[in-house]
Computed example of a mutant assay.
Amino acid sequence: MVETARHDAWSAGDSCDRYMGRWRRKIAPLFLDWFDPPTGLDWLDVGCGTGALSAAIVAQCSPKSVLAIDPSEGFLQTAQAALADERIQFRLGDAQALPAKPGSVDVIASGLVLNFVPDRTKALSEMRRVGRPGALIGFYV
């Protein structure tokens, strides 16, 4: 039997961006308006996907830095190609084992991701671990 190759839109950044990107780009600015964080802070974007929330953070929040993590290399490649801001660092990573030092970020945000995380309790514990005292943590699904 001959197997045919399937295109996995959930690992190919351009395909996923055409499908979900339109929603991500619309909701991210609204979320940030509601979240209303101070400027000049270190951010963590958990599950950055193709970069819609990271782009909105840079455009609206004047961050000091943004660490954007995602488990998909395809998504990260798409995000890096679209966002050439020196404040953003993209890194391969998992919400359940965040690649950040304890107490290293001021604001942790996640958009349209937590419903895809197998152990949300672990992911939220990781967010607390990497947040500085008084860190803001916000997400939407």
Rank of each mutant, 00 (worst) to 15 (best):
A9F: 11
A9Y: 06
S65R: 08
S15P: 03
Y19G: 10
K101T: 14
G93Q: 06
T50R: 05
D36P: 00
G13M: 11
S54K: 08
F35D: 05
L76H: 07
G13L: 07
L136V: 04
P71E: 06
D70S: 04
A52C: 11
G47A: 12
D70T: 01
D85F: 04
F35C: 11
D94E: 14
I108G: 01
T4P: 01
S15G: 06
F139Y: 05
K64P: 00
K64C: 11
D42S: 14
P118A: 09
R25D: 15
S62T: 10
S125R: 13
R18A: 14
G13W: 04
E86Y: 02
M1L: 13
Q77H: 07
G103E: 14
S110Y: 00
A55R: 11
R132P: 00
G74F: 03
T39G: 04
I27D: 12
K64I: 03
P133N: 09
G49I: 06
V46W: 00
V58R: 01
S11V: 11
W23Y: 15
Y140R: 07
S54A: 11
R22Y: 09
R132Y: 02
S110D: 05
R25G: 07
G103P: 01
D45T: 03
E3Y: 14
Q77E: 12
L98D: 02
P102T: 15
A95E: 10
E86F: 00
I88M: 07
R128H: 13
G103L: 04
T4N: 04
T39V: 10
C16I: 10
R25I: 13
D85H: 02
A5F: 12
D94R: 10
S11P: 01
D119N: 15
A5Q: 15
D119T: 10
D42K: 10
T50Y: 07
P102A: 14
A9D: 10
A79H: 08
K101W: 01
V58K: 05
V107A: 03
P29V: 04
W34D: 13
L30A: 15
E3I: 15
S54M: 08
A59D: 14
W10V: 12
P99L: 08
A100Y: 08
K122H: 04
R24S: 15
I57R: 02
F139V: 07
V117W: 00
D85T: 10
P99S: 01
G74H: 00
S125E: 11
V107C: 09
D45L: 05
R22K: 15
D17R: 07
L136N: 06
A82D: 13
F116K: 01
K26R: 15
T50W: 08
Q89K: 13
R25N: 13
R128Q: 12
R129F: 08
V66A: 02
L114I: 13
I108N: 02
A100L: 04
A28H: 03
D42I: 05
Q96D: 11
V58T: 08
V113F: 01
A84Y: 00
A95W: 09
R120K: 14
A52E: 11
P133V: 12
R120F: 03
D119R: 08
P38R: 09
P63K: 06
A135G: 08
L76N: 07
D119Y: 04
Q89A: 14
D14Q: 12
V2P: 15
L136R: 05
F116L: 15
W10R: 14
Q60K: 08
E3W: 12
